[in-house]
Nucleic acid binder design. Structure first.
Lengths: 338, 338
DNA sequence: CCGGTTTATGAAAACGTTTTCTAAACTAAA
DNA sequence: TTTAGTTTAGAAAACGTTTTCATAAACCGG
């Protein structure tokens, strides 16, 4: 049943395959009203569907892009993906989604598979490794954009949060509300995780700018699962922080779990702020003041940028787009006099 | 650069394309160690990557499946998708993701595009419409499975929550904890939304079984955004419910927002239970008792089932897999004596 | 009625594989 | 040495399009 081909249409319409092809590609220029009608009818009658694969082989273009993400379950991912899908939909493109699970090996395998599949471009939330995989791609001007993270040593159009600003926003907001003992809560620092490093650096710089010292004890850098434990230890020690800056939603969960297990009151005893707007922010008590990422705009931009690369083959120097974080003022922070 | 083809490899290795093809498909049977080595080396030397498109054209199989979801942002979707991706990854398949946005027209367009793209199978979270689109597919035995919802009038392998059981679980749990005035919170009822209807029916039946009457006032069927408002109205009336059963996470959000705006205490004045485990369930105060869907198993099953369809062309009668909900007992419900 | 334009169509060669069938080369037996 | 069988490898025809080029038909002014 699935076997009706262009040749069949041609036969039925009494024209050649070439003519049918013309018709399909809307090259009506030199085609009589008559034939056009006959073809249309033949197509209708046979329920003909062009075989996209065959066309792709000829045209070397697939109207498909690949997206590789390092964490499919993360909300940021979901939202950016949503925007990507939407933009592609507008252009008649399809999206193949791959989950590297933060494993550079998988990531590598996927980019190769996607290239073999002749995708027209790639949007990657990179693990941060695999420099040698991406380098040839940029050399070759293969359409590629990074989102959220970068790969040190590879220059590619990238769509990132302005992490410095986000961190600064956090400490400024806290400081201007009278908090002076601010701790940062962050997963373990690894050099290739650019946003993490940037947020940390941004924090440190903002603190210094404000004249605060960053006590080693106030850098809670531990894997999220261990966070409640670690925080408990920290709060057993003297000079308790009076504000916590959680670097992302996972860290926030750790913080919230910790808070729940103690009798610390928020915001009376402890202010909380974090990066990533979470869906329950205004349902939680107190409502959580967060620093949101403009996920939708980021996904849109990433896709748009990919398409400029796809369309104009010659490419200028890669650009890094930094998106401004958005402060969502709620009630987990309170004016407090020193 | 991207132009190295099998012919090039053949030339360099001094063999014919056929032989290279054999090699690539691991048909080593009648191939000397010698040639095998030469080919391997030629491939290595040229950095040859087979063109999957060309192969697909010949083999009429693309190692790609399409997934159409009606809501990309929903957590259920994300999690099921994650499992699907993982299962496909194991089998060397790719997944194209499309968001119908709960618009039957888009959904229809997408299934046609995906078919034209020659995907080997389709997993759909259907809007519930488009019977006429799916019917021919099942006739033709095209690999297809539905997830979460169904399409009335089309019999297809489906992976669904056991919605009756979920609803029953909710009322049983509530009832056995002494709650007797249970209200259901649910988006507007529409016939083609199968899970919604089933949950509602399940609720009604379970209530009757328990000897409770379902007061019309205790069916809060309104779009989630209007929920806080509507609940406020309901609680202004007499015979307030002492327990709320939210049919899904969106309804839950409405409930929680409502609770936050009033001084009703949970669980003292009001018990809450809902379907869909939410990430903040044990961070919220009180911790939320929920009825979780086994999303991962569902995604896995859907994919497995799709692959049995793909592999064995002849297909027995479609099966509906009902997954048992999982009660997550927490503290938003309390023993209470009448 | 005749060359020269237009206008409309078709033949055939790609695209890069897989696959079938045939042939060459080698081996062992006669 | 021939013969028959066994390995090994290649030629060529697909797969379903697009695209280039040639040419046929129709038109048209002189």
């Amino acid at each position: 049943m699935k076997k009706v081909t262009m040749a069949d249409v041609a036969k039925l319409a009494n024209v050649s395959k070439s003519t049918v092809s013309q018709y399909l590609n809307k090259r009506y220029e030199y085609m009589s009203e008559e034939t056009r009608k006959r073809i249309a009818q033949a197509i209708e009658e046979l329920g003909y569907q062009p075989n996209v694969i065959a066309r792709s082989l000829k045209q070397k273009t697939t109207a498909t892009i690949g997206v590789i993400v390092f964490n499919m379950l993360h909300m940021l991912t979901t939202q950016v993906l949503h925007a990507i899908e939407e933009e592609c939909q507008k252009r008649g493109f399809h999206v193949i989604i791959c989950n590297s699970d933060d494993d550079p090996e998988k990531e590598k395998k996927y980019v190769n598979m996607l290239l073999a599949k002749q995708v027209d471009g790639l949007i990657v939330f990179p693990t941060g490794k695999n420099e040698e995989v991406y380098r040839p791609l940029v050399e070759e001007r293969f359409p590629l954009v990074f989102v959220d993270r970068m790969v040190p040593g590879v220059e590619v159009d990238s769509v990132l949060l302005d992490n410095f600003k986000a961190a600064e926003m956090a400490v400024d907001y806290l400081a201007s509300h009278g908090y002076d003992r601010i701790a940062i809560v962050i997963p373990p620092l690894v050099a290739y995780n650019v946003p993490r490093m940037e947020r940390f650096e941004g924090f440190r710089i903002a603190m210094e700018k404000r004249g605060f010292v960053v006590d080693e004890n106030n850098i809670i850098a531990v894997t999220p699962a261990l966070l409640p434990e670690e925080l408990k230890k920290r709060f057993a020690k003297p000079e308790r922080p009076n504000a916590l800056f959680a670097i992302n939603d996972l860290a926030l969960m750790g913080v919230l779990r910790f808070v729940k297990e103690t009798d610390i009151r928020v915001p009376e005893d402890l202010a909380i702020i974090n990066i990533d707007d979470v869906p329950f922010a205004d349902i939680y008590t107190p409502m959580l003041t967060t620093i949101a990422q403009p996920t939708f705009s980021m996904g849109k931009k990433a896709t748009e940028q990919l398409f400029v690369q796809i369309e104009q083959k010659r490419k200028e120097k890669p650009r890094v787009f930094r998106f401004s974080p958005i402060l969502k003022e709620r009630t987990s922070i309170r004016r407090k006099d020193k």
